[in-house]
Design a protein around this nucleic acid. Structure first.
Length: 287
DNA sequence: TTGTGTTTTATTGCCTCC
DNA sequence: GGAGGCAATAAAACACAA
């Protein structure tokens, strides 16, 4: 361990000038042209196979300063360390460097690059989660919209029946008329309530049932980079902070304090989606 | 074998924090 | 002002298809 094939001159810009262990300059260019000016017979790639990596004789003949790719063992240990804590305190950096036979700077760079890779992956995961959540909500929205259509026609037909009775001059006493109006009002309230997808403090059944992935799992990039204190969910719900480009509504206080308000952005998107198709947005029913 | 895309290692410059 | 973090980037190593 601790030996490789090439090392770099830290003073050179971007490390473009490379040196072999004996100090001979090396041209750095396209992979196939990475040749020492003379004597390429002893030159080896950073590594060719895992077997070669553990070939002590192979490493022994190398100068300890040479730069090379990290061995699987080194990477494994670094990965384990990263899993435990993705930030590196100076003490741990030194310890790891000693353990791995690397420069502390190399360990720091590895952690930095590893954090960047993790972040990229996390953004991909977050995107996938948000997308599937959106798709699921959209499909629920469509089915609820169909239910609403059906209920709407029910109301219309009941209205017509009621009007027919009144206009037809049938014998309707005050009490029975009031009862029918009450029934209609109840039906309207019921439809209205379902239309809004939620009631009270329980939040949306749709959201609860189909969007568990939006519940803070603690490993989202967004969660980790944005302070939860700054993005509490409405009504004290434990939900992730708004995602740029999706959360377009301000909490204007009109929300009833339940969780569903947080997802209104999704419905806004749904509405826009239906608008594009020439359909009516959510909330068209009672307007 | 070669061209091309991806991954890994490293640098630079800027920013923030103490 | 120095240390450390991050984004952007370079370039070699690597993988793989044609």
């Amino acid at each position: 361990m601790g030996s490789g094939h090439i090392f770099f001159d830290p003073s050179s810009c971007h490390g473009n000038m490379l040196f072999l262990g004996n100090g001979d300059p090396l041209f750095r260019g396209p992979r196939s042209t990475m040749l020492k000016m003379e004597d390429s017979s002893k030159r080896r790639p950073f590594f060719s196979s895992p077997e070669e990596l553990y070939d002590e004789e192979y490493y022994d003949e190398q100068s300890p300063e040479k730069k090379r790719r990290l061995t699987p063992e080194q990477v494994h240990l670094l990965e384990k360390s990263f899993e435990a804590e993705n930030k590196l305190e100076p003490e741990r950096k030194t310890q790891l460097a000693q353990k791995l036979g690397l420069q502390p700077r190399q360990v720091a760079v590895w952690f930095q690059n590893r954090r960047a890779r993790w972040k990229t992956k996390q953004l991909e995961r977050d995107y996938d989660q948000l997308k599937s959540s959106y798709d699921s909500l959209l499909s629920d929205f469509d089915s609820i919209r169909k239910d609403n259509d059906q209920l709407k026609s029910e109301v219309v037909s009941l209205m017509e029946k009621l009007q027919g009775k009144v206009v037809g001059g049938s014998v309707v006493n005050e009490k029975s008329e009031a009862l029918e109006v009450d029934a209609l009002t109840t039906l309207q309230v019921k439809v209205k309530t379902e239309d809004r997808l939620s009631s009270g403090s329980g939040g949306s059944a749709v959201v609860d049932e189909h969007s568990p992935q939006l519940v803070d799992s603690g490993d989202s990039y967004f969660h980790s980079t944005i302070d939860h204190e700054e993005y509490p969910g409405p009504g004290g719900c434990n939900i992730p902070p708004p995602v740029d480009g999706l959360q377009s509504e301000e909490d204007d206080g009109s929300d009833d304090g339940s969780c569903h308000g947080y997802f209104s952005n999704v419905f806004v998107a749904s509405e826009e989606h239906h608008h594009e198709e020439g359909e009516e947005p959510l909330g068209w029913f009672w307007s």
